[in-house]
Write a protein that binds this DNA or RNA. Structure first.
Lengths: 156, 156
DNA sequence: AATCTTAGTTTCAAGTAGAAACTCGCATGT
DNA sequence: ACATGCGAGTTTCTACTTGAAACTAAGATT
């Protein structure tokens, strides 16, 4: 992989990490993916401190990852639902979980994610080239604006 | 997506997050992907406090994400290199960055990652079915051990 | 009316992050 | 050989964050 020393701080990773860069963020997200929508459910399932959970949920709502609505049938209850933006973190979450399975816990944790159509397990999340080849260690390169347009022009 | 309330804590996400669940972990990783291998380089590039950097590097080495070696030509210098395990976090990191580009900073940050062969930008990291279809909100389901083997047997 | 639930907030102790100064082995210039 | 500088940390001390537990305030239940 090439060396690009300029501009490392200007990418969107820091922005993403400001929200997701703590121990609980992905765990709350995963619980939400799994159909937990209420404060008490989340708190008990995760074992997170109540103040921290309240703080994180508020942050998620502020940043548009979740929507907070009260339930009409029982107006004490609040429902937290993932927005499209929140759901868009699924690939990241799955990638991290798969990494953990492969390299930390030593493989297939259950439950596993399957395609609802055929019940088959999903693929490993990978970095793919434009035509779908999986890209590894030596296959990647950082490019600046000019480079990419040149290449696209040459290719197309 | 189905509801699986049992067993949420038994998956590998918490294990992965113990290592990667802080603000700096992915930034250090990314810097390493980008060819920064020395303490001072990392410290200056990231603006991280020296004690925290030292602590994180030690943890990465402990957990086998990086290898620490001293440089023969200048024995003051230490080189930190990603192991296979560390490199295996690339899809997670790229997924998170792409999410940030799409939803936080509002798109194409430079430099971008391209395939070194043809110079073309990489695909969006996605969750794919066994046959390569991208899977979205309603397409996923959590399955327990028995379910999956049944399906595989039925399909194959 | 009394009690229970849900979703928080408050309080305070303990832990972690951050900035700055310090150490220590090694290299370099003279 | 000696002074100076550098690379990779460590120490110290302050400020912020986390976490556990108790508390609160609407709204539901009996």
């Amino acid at each position: 992989m090439g060396q690009v020393r300029e501009n490392l701080a200007e990418c969107s990773l820091p922005a993403a990490l400001e929200l997701m860069g703590d121990r609980w963020a992905f765990l709350i997200l995963r619980a939400a993916f799994n159909g937990l929508h209420h404060f008490e459910e989340l708190q008990q399932e995760l074992g997170i401190a109540r103040n921290i959970l309240a703080n994180r949920l508020a942050r998620f709502v502020d940043h548009g990852l979740m929507e907070r609505a009260s339930v009409p049938e029982d107006r004490r209850k609040i429902v937290y639902n993932l927005t499209e933006k929140g759901f868009a973190l699924l690939p990241t979450m799955v990638a991290l979980r798969q990494w953990g399975e492969r390299w930390e816990t030593g493989s297939p944790a259950f439950p596993i994610l399957v395609d609802v159509r055929d019940g088959r397990p999903i693929q490993q999340v990978a970095v793919l080239s434009h035509d779908g080849r999986p890209l590894g260690k030596g296959d990647l390169h950082w490019a600046l604006p000019g480079d990419v347009e040149d290449q696209a022009a040459r290719a197309g």
